[in-house]
Design a protein around this nucleic acid. Sequence first.
DNA 1: CGTCAACAATGTTTCGAAAGTTTTTCTGAG
DNA 2: CTCAGAAAAACTTTCGAAACATTGTTGACG
Lengths: 259, 259
Amino acid sequence: MVRDEDGSTRAREVYARLRADIFGGRLAPGRRLKFGELRERYAASAGAIREALVALTSEGLVVSRPHQGFHVVPLSHRDLAELVEARLVVETRALWLSVRDGDTAWEAGVVAAFHVLERTPLLDAADRPGGEPGHPSDAWNAAHAAFHHALIAGCGNRRLVAVARAHREEAELYRQWSVSLGRRSPETAASDHRALMEPALARDPDLAAERLAAHITLTARLLIRCATDAPAAPPEAAPEAAPAGRPRVPAPAPPPRTP
Amino acid sequence: MVRDEDGSTRAREVYARLRADIFGGRLAPGRRLKFGELRERYAASAGAIREALVALTSEGLVVSRPHQGFHVVPLSHRDLAELVEARLVVETRALWLSVRDGDTAWEAGVVAAFHVLERTPLLDAADRPGGEPGHPSDAWNAAHAAFHHALIAGCGNRRLVAVARAHREEAELYRQWSVSLGRRSPETAASDHRALMEPALARDPDLAAERLAAHITLTARLLIRCATDAPAAPPEAAPEAAPAGRPRVPAPAPPPRTP
DNA sequence: CGTCAACAATGTTTCGAAAGTTTTTCTGAG
DNA sequence: CTCAGAAAAACTTTCGAAACATTGTTGACG
């Protein structure tokens, strides 16, 4: 009678590893995912691979066409613009609600997550195996995600939180593939996040949401500037990463509230 | 070189039928989905069934616990409240953007969808096989969904549109299982939707969004009143449809914009 | 020289059986 | 009568092979 929610399932393991490989940049956007390769790579049979791919498909990280196989989702300017817009809609609103409704446990979670984020070095001490030189460390990425999650967790709406997380993760993917992103200093990052946390703890929903919107659009601007220079060219074969569409920032924060 | 997006795949077919059976009320919320039954019902092997279930899982219609099988998602007051809140966030904003950015093709789509909706009888002429007496017809449901989709399609953000559709579909599930929902007259429904369309075509984003919010919360109120009377009791065995949580309406439209 | 059709190769999808895990049932002792 | 423990049943999960579809290539024909 353990009744653990243990995710011990062959397919779930492949799912997790595939996901990590996509986010970690080991599988380039637009790259075709052949069953043979994956079977060898993850030492699982076609059924398990397939199941993991289907799960990732409805999560938006993988696209599939019947009888034509699976691909890592291709990055495009248009998709990035849509993603930023969606984040502005969902995440800022979730934060607003969170600040309004969050209880003491929520506050504690935010403070704790910020503390961890502050103490986690942005870059690895030395270039570890697997750690890219210019990119943030895995630990920092995790702490960063945890902080943003803690901020909006107070709204109590599992649905909004889940959608926001999905959006953040895809944004992470874009960040992974943008060339270096003009490395911001650790100090800048810390003050950015403190600027997010302060109005939240001070129970000022409007200011908190405004700051978050600025945070999101700023990141997006950097990404898009990067992307125009080097249109998200993955080093390892991305035959159909179509950068078509409207490369503009999705209108700098279309007024979330009118007077 | 047809390059059709033909969904011809065994698993996809099972997926579609399962989905239809859940929405059609033939599979009650909370009901366990055993492989044996499903294999017989859909005449497919375990692999295909499994794949379809996984796809439905990450869509939120089915929940899975490793080694313990799959269930149709259980309905609960708390989940309904969260769903309504999420719809208010995503769908009203998408409509706002749609009204602001939509082009002539979007207008045409809205007008066309409304025309179809207006001409589709709310109830079937006679009680067809499969058509419940008090419930709207399949045709009307389809037209209704198409109308709401057309309204927000103008925002050009596939992500927002997809999330909104997922939310609407789950709301549909709740409506399916609420006993009768105090049948509104066809005239009321028509005028409701006209009230949605008019400000949209008149390019008044704020009014359109406001009307949509009212539309959503009104439906939710009816549902929740229904649910308190008869807590979503499915006729055909639903051993764990837990109606726990906070049964309140998620604050009647928390001010979407402050002055 | 360009176009079309059949062929081969690669890769995806499906199936049924075996392996592993959870739940239930049955027995015996306290 | 209740509770603990062990065997059995039921079900989920995994695997590898066979069936099926698509793509690229080659050859012939207009």
